[in-house]
Write a protein that binds this DNA or RNA. Structure first.
Lengths: 334, 334
DNA sequence: ACAAAGTGGGTAAACGTTTACCCGAACGTT
DNA sequence: AACGTTCGGGTAAACGTTTACCCACTTTGT
């Protein structure tokens, strides 16, 4: 059906070896023959079969990436950064969505490995349920976890220092005069959820702040933010500030507060985490903790390449420093 | 290095043919041998090499998809819907990002084709510059365009009826009492840009409305929305309504209006297009035209499967009806 | 002038599967 | 008893590349 290198060779009147050599440049070929070959490929519209090539070569010049849910706006940011990095070295990226489902995540990981990707970037769905897939994958291909991670699986990891980030947010609102802080975040189901929660609790304790009831834990979605905000409003009195586990939650919180007539930042301060695209466009623009996604991508590829080069090198876990981005949602003159 | 089916066969004391047969179920094998084989795979941690399988079988049970830019929040919605559809039939989806660059888009398309995907879903970057890649791709694999399309390339297409959608938005704001409408959209670089603009102009003309200067055309980004809103505010008097080419633009417009003290919907109405995740969370919640993304995904896969089944079937272009979602950004009592 | 080294080409063996084909045994059916 | 048929297994040929190896012919150095 499709034209093969054999067809090209035939048309050019050379052997397949010669055709392959001019097409890949793996060895010099005389100008006349080379010309004939590229002429033939043009005439036949030949495209090399990457599957056959991968089979023979044993590598594919492509990376795989699996994210929990591409609809979560933080992941596209990181995907794009990784993509850009990879492009610098001419490699392709195949992206898969796990739909927040560890079973599906496993399928995707195996599918990519089966496709002989040269390495795998994965943001695991769950700090626990993703463990098995990762351990399995690790035996088959170089692998680096990004952002979230699962414990007990010894792989490289790069992400942000969640604890430091939340601490920044807490200290910032406190410096704005807040004393009673509420926390709306996600269950400690993912490492991000766990560490951000921990960071909040530590900071509050260290600063000796009164606690405003237990943290409200749901999922990293705007929907959960709305619900949680509803509960906060239902309490007898508002906290001074609401520290959210990510920007989506914060946006949900802002929306519900607005609907209920709670004014931000006048009545209460709100912070997010991640600095997604819409954080600056929220109403009011959201103070948040920015993840250095370009640096994360950079380290991610660096780790992966190092792992490819030496599968037995000691594993590395790199927590990059986030930065605080102050916007109107915490601008109050006390 | 990695274990092959040959290792499995050897360990189980059977031929590779038998091993293959029990692994794929392509032909019945006696229970004892079957048991020995699956035992062996377990012990060796065997995973079939999908590359070799694809080479032999000629298909891969996977689809490819290329989007202009995964950071644009509309695309994840459609990607997720396609993913869900595909999952029903147990197929994998490999997603690529073109970073708004037709050259890169071409690379991605070719990479996917080279990987022998069974079909390709593509949202082209540009109505003109993507033409060559598409024409080339069409010769190699079944292909369906989604959302945007390039003309002059005969492929199946499914998307929304842009014209009808914009018309709905226009008629809606007019029914709210607006007369002077501004349009902020993207250059007619993509089919969506072109058709939405056309729809606006037609509707305005048909309803005999006064035009509020020429349409403001940039890109489908919030940033452009901000800029355009700035220009609108700089004019001597505000229009009654701003009809935006998509939700991102609208969100940018809302943000800039807010910053400049223009009240929506009190001073001016604003509408978007797409109904992305954040439209409902914007301030005020955004009236917009919702794309039926689940149906789009459904038709997309249907078209693709039909094309795979019969490459010579007549091509189809399916424009689905959008629906108007009225929220506060157009709620005004005149 | 003759060996050594280099140059430019071809032949064929991989890569890991699946599957067309073959073969022997067991099992009816006349 | 002779003869299909089915059943369950193996052998080996593909799939489309790349590349190790080989060979014939220069070129170069002595």
């Amino acid at each position: 059906m499709a034209t093969t290198i054999r067809d090209v060779a035939e048309r050019a009147g050379v052997s397949v070896a010669t055709a392959s050599r001019v097409l890949t440049g793996s060895r010099p070929v005389s100008p006349e023959l080379a010309e004939r070959v590229i002429q033939a490929t043009r005439e036949l519209g030949y495209r090399h079969n990457a599957v056959a090539r991968a089979l023979r070569r044993g590598h594919t010049n492509a990376m795989g990436m699996v994210v929990p849910e591409i609809g979560n706006p933080f992941f596209p940011t990181i995907v794009e950064a990784v993509e850009r990095r990879l492009q610098e070295t001419g490699r392709d990226l195949f992206l898969c969505d796990a739909q927040q489902d560890p079973d599906l995540e496993r399928r995707r990981v195996l599918a990519l490995i089966g496709r002989q990707v040269d390495g795998l970037v994965i943001v695991p769905v769950s700090a626990t349920a993703s463990g098995a897939s990762l351990a399995e994958a690790k035996g088959h291909t170089p692998l680096v976890q990004v952002d979230r991670y699962v414990e007990g699986v010894d792989t490289d990891w790069v992400g942000v220092d969640d604890t430091a980030g939340i601490t920044m947010a807490v200290e910032h609102v406190v410096s704005c005069g807040a004393r009673r802080l509420a926390c709306v975040s996600a269950t400690p189901d993912s490492s991000a959820g766990r560490r951000r929660l921990l960071g909040f609790q530590e900071a509050v304790m260290r600063l000796g702040l009164p606690t405003d009831g237990p943290p409200l834990l749901g999922s990293f979605t705007a929907e959960w933010g709305r619900v949680a905000a509803g509960r906060i409003v239902a309490e007898k009195h508002l906290p001074d500030a609401v520290v959210c586990g990510n920007d989506e939650i914060a946006v949900g919180v802002l929306g519900e507060f607005r609907r209920r007539g709670v004014r931000v930042p006048l009545d209460v301060l709100v912070t997010g985490f991640d600095d997604i695209r819409f954080a600056a466009l929220a109403d009011p623009p959201l103070t948040t903790v920015r993840q250095p996604h370009e640096r994360i991508a950079e380290e991610c590829i660096r780790l992966l390449d190092a792992r490819i080069a030496d599968p037995d090198a000691p594993i590395q876990r790199i927590a990059l420093e986030p930065t605080l981005v102050v916007r109107e949602s915490t601008q109050r003159l006390w």
